[in-house]
Structures are given as C-alpha cells and as structure tokens.
Design a protein around this nucleic acid. Sequence first.
DNA 1: TCATATGCTGAACAAACGTACAATAACTAT
DNA 2: ATAGTTATTGTACGTTTGTTCAGCATATGA
Lengths: 189, 189
Amino acid sequence: MTIEKAVSLLRKFYKQQKRLPSYQEICTLFGYSSKNAAVYLVNKLIEAEILEKDDKGKLLPKKLFHIPHLGIIKAGYPSPAESSLGDSIDFYEYLLDIPGDIFSLTVHGDSMIEEGIHDGDIVIVAKDHHPRNGDIVAALVDGEWTVKYFQQKNNRVYLIPANNSYPIIEPRESLSIGGVVASVIRKYH
Amino acid sequence: MTIEKAVSLLRKFYKQQKRLPSYQEICTLFGYSSKNAAVYLVNKLIEAEILEKDDKGKLLPKKLFHIPHLGIIKAGYPSPAESSLGDSIDFYEYLLDIPGDIFSLTVHGDSMIEEGIHDGDIVIVAKDHHPRNGDIVAALVDGEWTVKYFQQKNNRVYLIPANNSYPIIEPRESLSIGGVVASVIRKYH
DNA sequence: TCATATGCTGAACAAACGTACAATAACTAT
DNA sequence: ATAGTTATTGTACGTTTGTTCAGCATATGA
C-alpha cells in the first residue's frame, strides 16, 4: 500500500462520509485483516503530514486536501514560478475565512467587467452594512439587487459600475447594503 | 440553545478539529450536563438538515457549511435576485470537484485581464496535457511558466494573451502544458 | 548468509461512544 | 388552571474505538 494510494482512498472516503475512517474502517477500505496494519499505515501518513492527531488523540486531516501551490507566475511575460514550491493551500480555509455571516450570488451582466467580475461568476458577500468607499458591494437599490463599487460623498451614496457603458446609480427611494464582496469565484467548463 | 448558536459553535469546533464533536464533547461545548441533552439537540439539527447520519449512524455535516445562495443578480442594471432563494452551495465541493490532479498558481501581471484574471488572482489548474483550442492553460514555455489562451493551428501552438498590449507567444525551444485552468479565485482585503 | 527493517496478522483490554429509558423543570397554549 | 410540549438531568448498557503486545512473512542491506 503506497502513500499515494492511501491518500486517494482516504480522500474518497472523506468526500463521501465527510469524516476520516476509524481504524476498523481503514481495514475494510484497504483490505487489511488486522487493525494494527491500519495503525501502521496511519503512522506513516502522520509522518508524511497527511494526517495528524489532536490533543485528544483523535485523527484528523492535515494536508489531505491541501492543493500544492506552485508559486507565483507572471501572466505578462513568462517568468519562473517564483520559489515557494512545495507549499500548499487549504482552499476551504483560504476562501471562507471570512468573519460574520456570508452569502453568495451569481452575477449576470458585464457592468463590473473592468473589475474582473464576469457574467456567471459567483461572488461571496460578507454581511456588513458599513462599507468603505471603493468597496465592491451587493446592494438592494429601490427593491432590486445589484453589485457595484460603493462611493459616499457629501452624505449621498453612489453605486459605480466598472464599465463605462453603464451609468452611475443614485438610489432614489431606498438603499440597503447587503454586504461587501469578499471573494470572486469562477469555474470554467 | 438556539439552532443558530448551535450552528455557530459547531462550525467553530469543526474548523478547529476538522471533525464533528461526540455527544460528550457537545455537552462540554454547549454546557450540558447530560449526554441526552446533546442527543436532543442533535436530533433538532438533523431535522433542520444541518447535520445528518450516514448508514452506520455516524454524525456528519450536511448543510453546516453551506453558504446560502441568494440567486442570480444582474450586475448590469438592478434586477430581482431571481428565485432560487433558500438554495445553498457547498463551495468545497463546488470548487474542487475537479477530476485528476490539481495545483494552484498565483498570477502576476495583467496579460489575461480581458478574461477577468487579474494581478494576485489564484488559478486552480487541472493537470491535463491535451487542452482544446480556447482553453486557458498554464504552460511551461522555454523553461518558464505563463498563463494564456491555448491555440493550435497547422501543427503549431500559439499562446495568446487576453490583452492587446502583449504579443502572442510562439514557443521556440520547448512547450509543456501544465494543465487547464479550471477555476479562478480572488479574495478582497 | 545472516541481521534488520518493513508490512501485516491476531488477540486482548480499558476507555469512549452512541443509544435508550425514566424523570423533572420550564415554557405554551388553551 | 391545566394539559401538553419542549428542554434538560441522570443512569445504565452493549458496542465500537484506539492502543498495545506478541508473532510471522517478506524485503532489504551488509
């Protein structure tokens, strides 16, 4: 049983069950007939930093789902993927480490295209009703939702698109800030 | 103990421990002195679809980390957040449901800006060495990494930027396709 | 060829775990 | 006021869990 195969099986189990298997379940999963074989394997995985044990001795994933981050590349001209090789990122933590309540929206249209928010992108919004100038906000203007830059001047609020062909919005009746856009997620295919 | 507070405490525990607490740990966590109080609470959470039990009776998160998806909004002009309210997304599944090996890169520069890939964005790349025309690829050109559109014509490969001020790259010596960009992730602040 | 490390089997055990049942306190609705 | 539901306590029990020890077969290296 190689580490690679073990990682693959553990990922599969974790994705289905949303938890790590017990030693007994590892036996079933890996075809062992002795629990101690599982203990042996787990120790190797702990050494490899795939798994770890918490203070109570319970098993938990360490880098099981980390994605190797190959570094920074210039999209302008080719450049060496700057160092930091061997690093890895837990995207769940990376993305959702946002304080407070969050919700998401799918964006349609191209009014924020110069900000790199395209049709079909999902934005993650942190509920925060006191945005600062320049923040990208999800706002409820006159009863309808929109995503725009937030700008406050002389006690008046302007919602500014990132696309010249759209007008700046000045809320007439009511304005409710849903929150500040914390992340943008795009998926291809 | 309200459901909201329970969810918040469970999320905190799960983030730290990467697993759900046992009934005993729920007692400590919620200040109960009887395990049965924990059972009671858990049953409510199962009814609310926050948690669920698998076929073996083990507790696992169902919608504990789902982010409410408020629907589709027009970024052009304000429009009603089209239905689908009450829906929710598991972003871990959403993002990383990519077959095969993946790795990530941080992009510098603005050569893909018209594709909405900005300086500082992270791209998730699926290792796939046979991209189709139009795919965004991470490629190793003459020993250095770059992110560009992939275009193959008459047996020649072109790497095309999404920015007019940059030239089309024709690999001279060698070209190695690292993979196809599957997602783009941006984080503000 | 012999010693050692590696990978696994099998069994034993205390602690922790989930489940169940009976009882009580607090809140709601009528 | 009273009946019923909701929220919690306390206890008991069989099962599963992680751990440990002894042993054996197969590779590995000197």
